[in-house]
Design a protein around this nucleic acid. Structure first.
Lengths: 169, 169
DNA sequence: GCCTTGCCTGTTACAGTGTAACGATCGGCG
DNA sequence: CGCCGATCGTTACACTGTAACAGGCAAGGC
């Protein structure tokens, strides 16, 4: 179940996960809470940190386990509530096809749409944004008279790194 | 006026798709089984029929219940196996965001991609295909060096029918 | 100070979703 | 006949998610 976490983030963006990304996300959350008068509690911060540092989709129960200490167990239901908050404000994304969560790798708000590239070999998830895809989606939706509220675009396949690894042997 | 084929019917109520659609799907399944030497068993056919006649996404356990009779209970696990077969061959689709299944409304194979428009008000699912979206997706994937295997595009929102109803009421 | 209010969290219990494992059955084939 | 492969029934179990209720804690009004 544990994989090669060095896979992911192809050309589009700098940096992967790790402490830098985590600090950036936490800072964004604090700013957001400040501005909107929301509470960025310890549980929510720790949940965000766990998700941000993993580098692959984490289930709610996995997060709960990581947040638990030998005398202080964190129940999954608490994690779900924290995740509700985080997803609502665009700090983490839910991967519907995996029932798992990943940190938001872009600064976009919760309303915008992202494309998730999920590697079947290493389990990494790469988040990209394409104005072209959004435009064509918007056109199709308008044509169908459909008013979108949220969009899920998840592509499963093999990432560049794993393709190279397979060819190499 | 294409790009959005005959999917203007936003099903409300139990009998949105109707026997015609069902018969067409069953016929396609039989042809497919004939050609590929597969077994289109009674369970698989009945599962397909139930899904095709519902007009909205059905969970595996709902299907099991509909297939069960007062002396002959069908377990969910059997339904899952039938659904595996049906999805593998493009006869039904899985809606990841709902953990539910809908009949395939197009003749496309399992490998192609579809866009699902899921109405939050009436629960109907409309399946459309857009070459434009596929093109832009392909471009983005190629740019990222990602080799796609399956694609999930699910838009939640409000269908045209429900928008009109809300304004009127 | 005290009380109320609202939000967050802990806890329990439970519903819904999906899979593993094993055995039985059936049809085809040497 | 026995073997083989695929399907299906059954049980058991793991994983995912939510409902309901109680306690804590900060903010604001009396």
């Amino acid at each position: 179940m544990d994989g090669h976490d060095t896979c992911g983030h192809h050309g589009h963006g700098p940096a992967a996960h790790g402490p830098a990304r985590t600090a950036e996300l936490v800072a964004r959350a604090e700013r957001l809470a400040q501005d909107l008068g929301l509470q960025f509690t310890a549980l929510r911060r720790r949940t965000l940190e766990v998700v941000a540092e993993e580098g692959r989709p984490l289930g709610a129960y996995d997060i709960a386990e990581r947040l638990s200490a030998p005398g202080k167990r964190v129940a999954a239901v608490s994690v779900y509530r924290a995740l509700d908050f985080l997803t609502e404000h665009g700090l983490v994304h839910r991967i519907a096809s995996r029932n798992a969560f990943v940190p938001c790798e872009h600064g976009h708000g919760a309303g915008e749409s992202a494309v998730f590239l999920i590697c079947r070999s290493c389990g990494s998830v790469d988040e990209t944004i394409s104005a072209e895809i959004e435009r064509s989606l918007d056109r199709t939706l308008a044509q169908a008279g459909f008013k979108p509220a949220s969009r899920i675009v998840e592509i499963e396949g093999e990432c560049g790194t794993c393709q190279g690894r397979q060819e190499a042997g």
